[in-house]
Structures are given as C-alpha cells and as structure tokens.
Amino acid sequence: MSPLARKRLGKIALNATGLLVFVFAIFPVYWMVSTAFKTNDQIFTTEFIPFPTSFTFEHVHRVLTEGVAGNSIWVYMGNSAIVALGTVLVGAVFSLLAATAVARFNFKGRSTFLIVLLVAQMIPAEALLIPLYLRVIDLGLVDQLAGLILVNVGLTLPFGIWMLRTFVAAVPKSLEEAAWIDGASRLTTFWRVLFPLVAPGLVATSIFSFITAWNELIFALVLMSESSGYTMPVALQFFFGQKGTDWGAIMASSTMMTIPVVVFFLIVQRRMVTGLMAGAVKG
C-alpha cells in the first residue's frame, strides 16, 4: 500500500471510530426521547423500531395531567426548580464571600480553612445522611423544601468556594488597587470592579450547584415524605409500579428532567472542565 493510501485509510478509520463513539454516547439519550413519543404498541415489542413512526404526545400529556403518585409532573419539576434555585442563590452569595476572603486576603487560619474545604469535599454525602436527617427533624423542616435547600447548600458549598476561588484569583489585583487609589471604597471596588469580572465564574459555579441539587436523590428521598413535596428524582421512582412499568410515561418525564441540564451543559461546557480541573489542581 502506498503511504498516501495508508494515510487515507487511517483517516477513515479514525472518523469511523469517532462516529462509533458518537453513537455509543448519544443512542441511549435518543432512545429515551424516542420512546417518550412512541405509542405503547411500538414500545412494548421485541422488534427494533428506530423511529417513532406512530408519533404521539399521549405520554407527555399523561404525565403532565395525570402525573404520578397523585400529582402532575409539573409539581415535581416545580419543587426541583425551587430547591435547585434556592441552593444556587444562597450558595452563590456564601461562596462569593468566602472565595473573596481566601483569594484576596492573607489572614491567620487561611491555610487551615483551605484544608478544611478539601476534607469537607472528600466526605461522602451519603455518610452524612443520618445526622442531617435527624437535624432536619429537630429543626422541624421535614417535608419542607427549605430543609432540602439547606442540605444542598451544605453539599455544594465547599466545591463552590474551591472553584470560585480560582476565578477570583484570576482577576488582577492591580485593577482593584487602581480603584482604591481613585478613592473607591472596598465595597464599591468589590461591586464595580471585582464582581463584574468574577461574574462568569460565578455563573459556572452556580450552574454546577444547580445541577447537583437538581439531580440529588438520597436526601430528597428521606426528607420528603409527602408526595406533594417530591422532587423529580424521587417522583420518577414511582413509575416503577407493581403492575409493570409505564415506560412511555417514565421516558417522557426523564426527558423533561434532562432538558434543563443539557441546556446548562451546552452553555458552560468549556468552563465546566476548566472549573472542575482548576478546582482540583493548583489554583
């Protein structure tokens, strides 16, 4: 074989492998979405039906009206949104303050705080389930979305601070010093100079927290006993009934749950990687 032909063949092989990876990654997602729009005849079959030729909205309609466990899927989507947004709002303020402290000041106990952050990140959330559950009972926050928000803030904060710290540190200090020389106060400098420059990092960190809270299952499972307070991950479990599984409905609901995350992912894709990596490697 001539070198040129070999090179060409190698290129074809590379592209074919790329296509294979693409199919492996996307097919399960596609299968979820397409099942959501198939009629039951086309779902419960041993045949392979690549496209929903009998395209239908019946499952989407059913989960939105009839829903599961006594409520429409909108209720659970709403609960999930409240929990995730609440977590983001509280977390963003707290992590911005702490990240500024760590990245902008030298103070006694700074390195201790950083080590505490690291260790806190290593603690598996599942291990904290029992004491946090008892604490939430003590506070009277069982069946309250506020209890779930509180827990999620705790779970996402160490990583949020750790990640945001690198974004704050990336803003040159000279900019703030220039503002001080011009007579701006520390607070003004923070709002007018530092905050706008850190905002993209804050968005990335917030989206990360949003996704974590949106996806969280185990705490929602034990803290929410009434179905009107379920979040999406909990509600989805109730489609697996005694009388067989309503796959059309569950795929429609899973698709609805996945859409916001996909959108966020596509927005912050690049920062997500730098954030995760920078958060973990030296900042």
Partner: peptide, 10 residues
C-alpha cells in the same frame, strides 16, 4: 456532552 448531562436517576 449529552451522555454527560443526563442526571444519574435518568
């Protein structure tokens, strides 16, 4: 990206 974005429960 799609595979990565799917929530664990889904």
């Amino acid at each position: 990206m799609f595979a990565w974005a799917v929530p664990p429960v889904a």
